[in-house]
Amino acid sequence: MPETRSLTIRDREVRVLEDGNSDVPVVFLAGIGGVPAWTPFLEALAKNRRVIVPSLPGFPGATEFRHLDSLYDWVVHTLETLELLDEPTFDLIGSSVGGALACEIASLVETQVRRLVLIAPFGVFLEDDPAADIWAQVPGPKSIPNLVCSHPERWDAIWEKPADGDEIEWSILQTRSMEAAARFLFPFGNTGVTSRLHRIHNSTLLVRGAEDRVLPSAYNAVFAEGIEGAVRTIEIEDAGHLPEIDNPETLVREINAFLLDQEN
């Protein structure tokens, strides 16, 4: 089981989960829904790496986010979080919503981020090939998992309410994370990152679930073209927008291979 600690950023608490061993850690910025509990993906990743998971504001583990208005606020908050981890350098994995922030960080602080793994990052929008509208979904517990996962039952397993949990508070946890994503990504997920991708010099693994119903494949192509560093592009079979939930074994294998290649 991971260790849990808390960072205080401008008087607000941010949960940090950590497990595994390695000199240089991997920091994971989660996608839609966040990390309500330590997941099979993180468990598998932590077998070879020290994995650090700070919560994004408004996502499980960090309740407050409405003080952050602009993308700039969100980026500064993320930067402060990473600084407080007190790691001189780390590999950075950003998925989906967290991927948008990981790109911004990598475009700003070349020295701290070693390698970059982006899993279906938000950040661009193509009018002719629109992303799904994640905020226009039929209300109900199945809508989001069915949209973002090829195996929604794996989402459900991660999101199983603790025995002593309050049903309404548990549902608010999910709604709040969707609102938090909207706070800086609504309506398109377009952060204007294309004008900053040239500043990303890191070796980058660009991942997409082959069955992603949220972001079309053309979106990763925009990142692949724009990022200045060497980019390896892969698709994970049997996975939707969140391959870390749908197919964690394959994803971890690919991430480990990528990180090892870079070290050799």
Partner: peptide, 29 residues
């Protein structure tokens, strides 16, 4: 279409806690 009725954030958390459904969500539902 009920997909328009209840985007996350439109209803405050306090209102969700009060279990009061918004008029439009009710209509859509």
């Amino acid at each position: 279409n009920p997909k328009w009725a209840s985007p996350a954030g439109y209803q405050s958390e306090a209102t969700i806690r009060a279990k009061v459904q918004s008029q439009v969500a009710l209509a859509a539902q």
